[in-house]
Each structure stands twice: as structure tokens, then as C-alpha cells.
Design a protein around this nucleic acid. Structure first.
Lengths: 252, 252
DNA sequence: AGATAGTTTTAATGACTGTTTAGTTACAAA
DNA sequence: TTTGTAACTAAACAGTCATTAAAACTATCT
């Protein structure tokens, strides 16, 4: 039954590592069966110890859930603050945030975030509020980058918060369908494609200046390449024209 | 406590309507407290009847959950098949699908879909599989539209399934943050903006031919209106030019 | 009024499970 | 060896809750 890592695995670990192991297997089980449907017997059995032994490490089931949430928050902000503080143009920063969100946060620990997203209502009121605050903080970071992007004229003009919700939602949802392993999408493929979609959309408008669709994801029917150069030049002219219009529009 | 609609409300309804009422309040409570943490006493109290009375309408708590899932599926496919079958270009059809997904499916019944997305692992194996099959069917519909869009040269060339995941994820996530009421975003705003973001991206590349950001969502600095007509004409010319290029590109 | 079917209630039942208690084992320091 | 502490176990406790059984109520029809 399960990955019964066995006593051998669990014992012979530093105390802090044991607690970590407990938290991890709990997260895994909560993910699979749900917090409320997972008994402490389930958890202890998976670890190869008794239910009562758990109480030497964690004071209650609820506390165990809290621990998962705390770790999730740590994971979320580990790199995010660093990225957001960088001296880079908003578009680059947003790209990094998105890539990190997918590769560094969600995919890094799927079951932890599955719990994070689905068991909020099991938290005590106080804890719940704290989590909500932190989530808002993250949204706000994304929002601010978008605001900068808009005021610098890099991003199209739209409601920043709504845009943040949209982006974050697309990335979060990955936990619902991502399955690792060969034959599946790699985290890089997913992140690269999501960035390209979010930056440039799925419609084939003008491509110049538009982010590339990662080559690994393009379909069969490919452009002939060299023969297209004329079209590209023509299109470039159009772009310049449009940019000009924008300029004129801005400066009266 | 709660919207104790009271006996008056519940009794004096056709049998089928009563069952519906039960299902709805159950969905609402499951949404708020989670399926496993919601007792049948909670449900019956909210309805103003006894727990035992519920068993005249629903044979078990699990069956109640099933009912919610069945209705969710009905809601999902109600309009979707119709839209997907229409004789319209892929970009228009996809736009309709997205709008329907947000306005006609998710926002239409938030708590139902909150349950739908979070309580899957509480379903019996057989039911679970069925739900998964149906969800795949929906994804497949979106995927197919995207495939058409790509082969008609309307969409950029990218992996259709990944694209479907991205779009669907962005839309589904709405259930996590949407709150109705004044001062919030209207379903129309959300749907329009999501479409615009998905079609054209957030980067300000060339705008011609690109979908508009819904006016209601643009920031403060607004165009002067009538004096802009010249720019609009100019831009229109550019668009025509681009369209022409596309044409040329397609027909050698 | 009496009967019938549909509806609701009261009061168990029985299983489950988080938590506690009292004790046992392992092992390192004295 | 003794002793002390941390790690663990077995067993019981106590509360919760889905489900059922049996009785009673209500309305409609005869």
C-alpha cells in the first residue's frame, strides 16, 4: 500500500528532517484524498509509525495543515521578491515572474499547492486571513509590474488587477493537469509557451517584435523561411507606421 | 444562522423543485465548508427540515454530490456544443466559447463549480472516471477549434492542447476570486478583457487587426473622441494593408 | 369518517477518528 | 550498571455523523 517508505527510512533522520518528512507525506495524502478524508492513521501508516507517534512531532492534525500552508508561502516568495526587485524593464520582469510561478512554484511541489488551493476553508479563521493577505500581496506584486508596463507604454492599457488575476489563474491551473514524466510537457515548454501566449496572444497578427512561439511547440506546417523575407519587411513597415501613429496620437 | 429560507419556502414546492433546492443549498454549503466538513444536519438546518427528511429526496450524501456533478456537466455542455457546431470562423467560435465559459458556465453558478473543481476525489471511482472523461471532451472541443484556427492561418502555430489548458485554466480560475456586486467587475468586463488578452496578449505590439481592449477597462488617459477619427482611419488603412499581406502570403 | 400515499420527525445505531493516557523501549551520559 | 530523556506503542476515550427504524402527521380521495 502506498510508497510505504518504511521505518528504516523514517528513523535515522534528524528531528527537523523527520518533521519535514511528515509534512511532505501529509501533503501528498491530503492532495490525493483530501484533508478531511485523510486520517492520521493513513499518514502514520504511510510513514511506518503509529498514529500516536505523530503527536511527538505535531500537536494536532490542524497544525499539520498549517505547516503545509506556511511552507507553501515560503516557496511562493522565495524567488518572487528577488525578481520583482530587479532593475529590469517591466516586460522582462513579468516574464521572469511567470516563468518562476510555473517552474519554481507550482510544478516544484504540486501536491503542496493542490492542498494550498483546495483546503483553505479548513483553516482556522485567523490562519485563513493570514493566507489571504499573503495571496493578495503576491497579486499586488504582479499588478505593480503591470502598472509600470502600462505607464511605460510597453503594455496595452487595461485593468492591472484583472490582468493579474488572468495571468495568475492560467499559471495556477497547471497543478490540475500537469503530470511529470516522458511524453508529457516539460516545465520549460509550459512556461515558455504560457509566456508567449500571454505576451502576444494566440491570434496571428503582426509577428515582428512579437514574442516567438517556442520552436519546440510549433506544429508541422512551417513557413518556407527565406522566401518570406519580403513579407516580413513589408510587415515591418506597417509596424513602423503604426508605431508612428501611436507617437502622433500621444503627443497631440 | 444562514439564509434560513425556512419551512415556508421549502414546502409548497413541486417535488422536483424541492430536490433542486436541496441540491443547490448543498452545493452552497459544500462550497463554503467543504463536502466532508458539511454535515447533513447543516444542510437540513439550512432548509428548515430534519436530517432524516433529506433521505426522502436523496438516498445518500454521496448521491447528493453526484447530483451536483451531473448538473455541472449539463451546464458545461448546454451551450458549448451549440457554439462549437456553428458555421463560423475559428477565431469567432473560440471567442464565443471563452465568453460562454466565463459568463455562461463559471460565473453562472460559482458554488457549483467550486465543488466541481475541488471535490473530485470524494467521488466513487466510477463517477470520478466519468467526470474526467467529460472534462477531456470539453478540452478536446477547445483544442479542435484551435487546430482549425492554426491550419487556417488565423492562429499562431503552437501546441493546441497546451493552448487549451492555458485558456481553460485562466477562465476556470475566475471561480476563485469572482465576487458579484457593485464595485466589482461585471461578467461582461471579465469576459471581454480575457478574450482581448488571450487573442492579443498584454504587450503593446502592432495594434492593427488586434482585438480592442474593452473600453470600459482602459485606464484614465482616454482618447479625445471625435478628433481621433483621422488616426482611426489611418489605422484602418494599416489593418487593410496587413490583411492584404496575409492574403498574399496564403496564395503564394 | 376512513383509507391511502406521501412526508416528516424522534430516537437510535454503529462506525469512524482525533486526541489522550499510561506505559514501554532505545540509547546515551554519568 | 544506573538513570534520564526522547521516541514510540497499545488501548481507551469521547465526540461526531451518516444512516436506519419506527412512529406520527398531512392531505387528498372515496
Amino acid at each position: 500500500m502506498g510508497t510505504k517508505a518504511g521505518k528504516s527510512d523514517f528513523r535515522g533522520l534528524d528531528k527537523s528532517l523527520r518533521i519535514q518528512k511528515i509534512t511532505d507525506t501529509a501533503a501528498e495524502l491530503f492532495h490525493r484524498k483530501g484533508y478531511r478524508s485523510t486520517t492520521l492513521d493513513d499518514v502514520s501508516k504511510e510513514l511506518g509509525i503509529t498514529k500516536a507517534a505523530l503527536y511527538h512531532y505535531v500537536s494536532s492534525k490542524e497544525k499539520l495543515l498549517s505547516r503545509i500552508y506556511i511552507q507553501a508561502l515560503e516557496n511562493i516568495f522565495r524567488n518572487t521578491d528577488k525578481i520583482a526587485g530587479k532593475e529590469l524593464p517591466p516586460d522582462v520582469r513579468l516574464r521572469l515572474i511567470i516563468q518562476n510561478h510555473i517552474k519554481g512554484i507550482i510544478i516544484q511541489s504540486i501536491s503542496m499547492f493542490s492542498v494550498f488551493f483546495t483546503e483553505e476553508n479548513q483553516l482556522p479563521e485567523k490562519e485563513f486571513r493570514k493566507i489571504r493577505r499573503e495571496k493578495r500581496k503576491y497579486t499586488r506584486i504582479v499588478e505593480e509590474i503591470i502598472e509600470e508596463g502600462i505607464s511605460e507604454g510597453l503594455f496595452r492599457n487595461a485593468d492591472p488587477k484583472l490582468q493579474a488575476f488572468a495571468i495568475i489563474g492560467m499559471c495556477n491551473w497547471v497543478y490540475k493537469w500537469y503530470k511529470p514524466g516522458p511524453g508529457s510537457y516539460t516545465p520549460e515548454q509550459i512556461a515558455d509557451y504560457f509566456v508567449s501566449l500571454l505576451e502576444g496572444g494566440y491570434l496571428k497578427g503582426d509577428m515582428e517584435g512579437m514574442p516567438d512561439v517556442p520552436k519546440s511547440l510549433e506544429g508541422g506546417r512551417e513557413k518556407t523561411g527565406s522566401r518570406m523575407e519580403n513579407y516580413q519587411k513589408l510587415r515591418a513597415k506597417c509596424t513602423e507606421l503604426s508605431k508612428l501613429i501611436e507617437e502622433m496620437e500621444k503627443h497631440g
